[in-house]
Design a protein around this nucleic acid. Sequence first.
DNA 1: ATATTTAACGAAAACGTTTTCGTGTTGATA
DNA 2: TATCAACACGAAAACGTTTTCGTTAAATAT
Lengths: 366, 366
Amino acid sequence: MLLYNEFLAMKKKITLKQIAKELDVSVSTVSKALSGSKEISEDTTQKIQAFAKLYNYKPNNIALSLKNRKTKTIGILIPEIVHHFFSTVIRGIERVANRRGYNVIVGLSNESFAKEIINMEMLANGSIDGFILSISKETLLKQDYHHFHATISQGMPIVMFDRVVSEVECDKVIVDDFNGAVKAVKKLIENNCKNIALITTMDYVSVGKLRTQGYLEALETNGFVPDSNLILKIDDSLNVENHLEILETEIAQFFQTNPQIDGVFAVNELYAVTAMKVAKKLGMHVPDDIQVIGFTDGVLSKHATPSLTTVSQHGQKMGEQAANLLIDRLDAEDAESEQYFTNNDKKSDFIKVVIETEIIERESTK
Amino acid sequence: MLLYNEFLAMKKKITLKQIAKELDVSVSTVSKALSGSKEISEDTTQKIQAFAKLYNYKPNNIALSLKNRKTKTIGILIPEIVHHFFSTVIRGIERVANRRGYNVIVGLSNESFAKEIINMEMLANGSIDGFILSISKETLLKQDYHHFHATISQGMPIVMFDRVVSEVECDKVIVDDFNGAVKAVKKLIENNCKNIALITTMDYVSVGKLRTQGYLEALETNGFVPDSNLILKIDDSLNVENHLEILETEIAQFFQTNPQIDGVFAVNELYAVTAMKVAKKLGMHVPDDIQVIGFTDGVLSKHATPSLTTVSQHGQKMGEQAANLLIDRLDAEDAESEQYFTNNDKKSDFIKVVIETEIIERESTK
DNA sequence: ATATTTAACGAAAACGTTTTCGTGTTGATA
DNA sequence: TATCAACACGAAAACGTTTTCGTTAAATAT
């Protein structure tokens, strides 16, 4: 009896076919009436639309996707979601995607090559119209990009952001890592730092490399001689979260063997705030004894004490740009397929959007 | 010419029909051969499978979804993604979803009632098999839950987490907010705090209310008399991000008019670290003069100086539990629909999973 | 030699749409 | 009255699968 009542209460989604049968017309008539085709008489149109509204008819997305051969959803594939930067990118993507009539489906590679491939294969089988992704660390290490080439040559567009790679041809959105680093180091120099240290990651992550290059460049153009002793490379191949103590001791050791350091540029937020914490523990005062600038404008920077001067990465803007690039391309494909012949042979040049960085001054610099 | 070359390079996804035509068999034969049906002879099976592998055939998800009337994807609807807690929940959901063969598609309500409804309607039209969601603030304020009822009565299961509401019947995953608060306040009492303040939000967010009740309960059972002067309610209807200064001055005023405060329990992380920051600015030492405990174990707590003692919320575990609840129900529906008759009249009782909290002691308490 | 099983495959329906192309009924026109 | 638009609607195909139900030919049984 319970089941029966449930059944009665259950207003399962109604279909065109059911409406047609109920109103004793054909499916095509219903479809046309609902789309306001003037092929159908006023009377029947009224009747059908009223009935549809009453039963809250909404066309089935899956059926539409199959018919139109496009899903109106875009796939996001990122290494990690519990990360302020990536969250802001997603927010940016979702914002413009929604505005332009798209949904987003997200996959997490968890920095793993294998999971990246699996995710791409799952989504590439019709579930989405295009990808927005940032490459996993393991993939960058292996330098194996066949899965990207494969999906692209299937006709599925990809937009890469932040962690990109020149080997695969597609639209890209990056932040100006190099110049961001230059600006940061220059600011430290202007603030009278004489011995500026760099805390960075291993070289295989492209952004880390670029920021390191920016650091070197800024030193040299300002008459400094880069000192390899002042560069600390952290091996973050293991999960950083659990290795906070290791990070702290490494930095402490670094500071102690190089007491002359009076400025620090760190390639990410965590390294920067940890450096501040360690400095304080060692009895140094920020920013009087040592000034610190980080990269990525996250929650830590804002709420640390002292709050951290950072190079802003504009995650949300990156997401918005990436989404616009992708959707532009998708819409262009649509328009193109409607024409028998178009003379756009410019089709295959890809766009690289560079987002300018900006220094947000807070309390960790003078 | 360029277009022609592109066309040659373009390995568009191949379909059953194309394989069939190429091998001069019927579509059904191809389908059966690929699924290893022993209806088909060894010879043709071999031939077809080889060909399919060569052309990297993968069945089209959309077509499968339409046929099976299930999409194997679950919809996540959360108020905000740039938020450590929600990110961890998503990570948890994605983990078990992926393991159990599901994809996740996320929508953001941005704390807005209207966007919540729009998102639900978009996804409920066939795109997903079920929802995992946390209610937006505006919805909680309006107390209008018709959209939840509507989708449930359409036969689409919902699992709510964290911000739930008794008015809608569905599976729920919550953290034990009440007891978490009790534990936190008890800890402060044990640590010899005599005047314990509460920094909380307005009452309409259920979790805030529960944590407030826990605070009061803990005081009373330990012989304290709650003092309304020691309760600071922050109006977070506006976006907190931009109102950091307002928050700081409010807390500063609060501390100054109540100098007897020697313990603070804050219902979220931001309030807690801001309280610490303000306390330090007012010349108080944490934890010697004033001890602080927050709710939600995020990045701020871990990396603040001093690091913050918190009530852990176990976001990832919540996500995992929620996903399991939902998928269990979906799989049960499947199994059920295969049988002509089943005697499970227990079908409609919903499960509420309560995740126990746990205090993570750090430097902000003694 | 006839009947019946088995093996190997194809046709068609179904999922829910949209759209193209009929087709029959009007009403007007020659 | 015969012809022709205009009107209002239905049939069918298509998107890519899976599955049920034939159907044919060969193999076995009677």
